[in-house]
Every structure is written in C-alpha cells, then in structure tokens.
C-alpha cells in the first residue's frame, strides 16, 4: 500500500498526488512511468512520473479524470492509500547536453514535461517551454514550469491567457523567428503530439514525444501498447514511452487508443448509476 502524502487540485478534473513509494522514488527518472491499481477488482493504468524525490521517498503523479479508474484516483484524499504503485517503468528520457530545447506541454501533458524541464535546467541546458490548454483555468503547473524554464510561453484555445490558439502556432512562430532550437520534446494528447510532429517535420527539427497508449502490465508482457515506429512494431512500455516524433504512426496510435472507448463509457455510467462514492469506500455519493 502506498500512502498519499499530499494532494493538490490543479484544475477541477486534474489532480496532483505526492505518493510515498521509496523504492520507486530511488530510481525514477524523467520520462518514466508507473502503473497504478486502486482496488482488488481494479484495472492497471499507466501514469507518467511528474516528479520524484529519493530523499523523502516520494513520487509525484498527475491524473486527469477521464475513465473510471482516473476518477476514483482523483477522488482520493491525503492519507488515503493506493493499492498498487509499480515502477519506475519505461526508458528514461534521453537528455541532451545541447540547448536550446523547446518543451511543449499540452493539457495535463505539462505534468510529465516538468521533470524533463527540471533535469535539463539542472544540466545547464537552455529551456524554452510552451504550455497550453483549452482555457486558462485548465492550465497546470505554470509557476513550476516558469521556475525551470528560461522562457515560458502560454497558449489557450479560447485566448483567455497568452496566445489565442494552439501550442503548435507558438512553436511555428518560434521556429520561423529564426531562433536557434536544438530539439523539441512534446507531451500531451496524441492529436497534439501529432500536430507538433507535423509542424517540425518540414524543418527536420529533432522532435521527441512521449506516447501514452493502453497498457496492462507495463513490463513488456502483453503488447497492448504496441505501436509502429519507423515501420517497426515497438512496445511503448519497454522500448519507449519516448520516441522520435517523426517516426511514430500517430493515426494508428490514436485509433488503438480508442479500442475500449465504449467500455470506458460503460464503466463510468455503471459507476454513476450505482451512485457509489467515487473514493472507493463503497459508501453513497
């Protein structure tokens, strides 16, 4: 059992948890993920590490409430425990020594971008960050990102903060302005990462993305997370989750990500129908 030491509501549907998991904390590096399970009949879901501290034995995760498990997790409180918390899994992000690096975080993808920014900054690499969301209330970790970026640019779909438009608009402007850029790392919804890949491809600008496919075990056993990278089938859990954006077959990845959309909807409906408290305590809402 893994205790939740701290919880922060980043948005009404995005929650940050600091979890006591000393073995995972000792090893976790930017880019890696953990697998979480909440109840004995629960599913296993992957969550990217948003921060870790070996000294205090803590790992930070950020969850966006979408399906049943993410909602149950989002409803947990400080002092509650997480049944299973396995990791760190996947390969760490390859961190370049040469900047400037442009980091693009979309939606709750800002959370996994943060430790990469922090690590690059610690290496003395110049970091330009672009973070975006639909609207300013859904922007997360802005202060944290500002503290580890040499420059922070913001985009919102509705123009409520920063650039009125997409993170890719800002990225394109940045490239077109002739600024020196060594590489781009983008994390966010699959469609956003696909858009970033399409933006940088004509410039032959090295771009990495962290994919977030469906997983079961997260250790290479099941192959649920397979995707096509440079024409070859890869497992995101052991070969990734970070890949060269220009090699990823995003259309396939988007399609595979929807494989259980109907079941996810059903599970949420069932949960709401039964009116059970979302914290998993079995009580009424």
């Amino acid at each position: 059992m893994f205790k939740i030491l701290k919880k922060r509501d980043l948005t009404p549907v995005t929650k940050l948890f600091v979890v006591h998991a000393p073995l995972v904390a000792r090893k976790a590096e930017p880019g890696q993920f953990v697998i979480v399970r909440l109840t004995p009949s629960g599913e296993r879901i992957p969550l990217t590490v948003a921060d870790s501290d070996a000294g205090s034995g803590t790992v930070t995760i950020v969850v966006q409430e979408v399906g049943k498990t993410s909602r149950l997790l989002g409803a947990l409180r400080e002092g509650d425990t997480i049944l299973d918390f396995v990791g760190p899994l996947g390969r760490p992000a390859p961190l370049t020594d040469r900047g400037p690096v442009v980091l693009v975080g979309g939606g709750f993808g800002v959370a996994p971008i943060y430790p990469i920014a922090k690590a690059l900054k610690a290496k003395g690499v110049k970091v330009i960050s672009i973070i975006g969301a639909r609207t300013k209330d859904l922007l997360i970790l802005e202060e944290e990102m500002a503290s580890v970026s040499d420059e922070l640019l913001v985009a919102t779909d509705d123009g409520s903060k920063g650039h009125h438009g997409l993170v890719t608009d800002v990225l394109r402007q940045l490239i077109d302005s002739g600024r020196e850029i060594e590489q781009v790392i983008a994390i966010g919804p699959m469609v956003m990462m696909r858009a970033v890949a399409k933006t940088t491809e004509p410039y032959k600008l090295k771009t990495l993305v962290s994919v977030d496919p469906i997983m079961v075990d997260g250790t290479g056993m099941c192959g649920a997370c397979r995707l096509t990278v440079a024409g070859k089938v890869k497992f995101a859990c052991v070969d990734g989750p970070i890949f060269d954006a220009h090699d990823v077959d995003f259309d396939e990845a988007v399609r595979r990500g929807k494989m259980y959309a109907a079941e996810q909807k059903l599970a949420v409906e069932e949960m709401e129908k039964h009116g059970k408290c979302a914290c998993g305590c079995g009580g009424e809402q």
Binding site: S41, E43, E263, L266, A267
Partner: peptide, 17 residues
C-alpha cells in the same frame, strides 16, 4: 492476462475490459 489475472469476463464489475 486480461481474462485470467484481470478477470475481464466479469467486466464491468471488474474494471478491465
């Protein structure tokens, strides 16, 4: 694994489809 370990045959009582 979905069927045996995660008991997908009991979905949606169990979470894994």
């Amino acid at each position: 694994t979905r069927t045996n370990l995660m008991k997908a045959y009991l979905f949606p009582e169990w979470d894994t489809p």
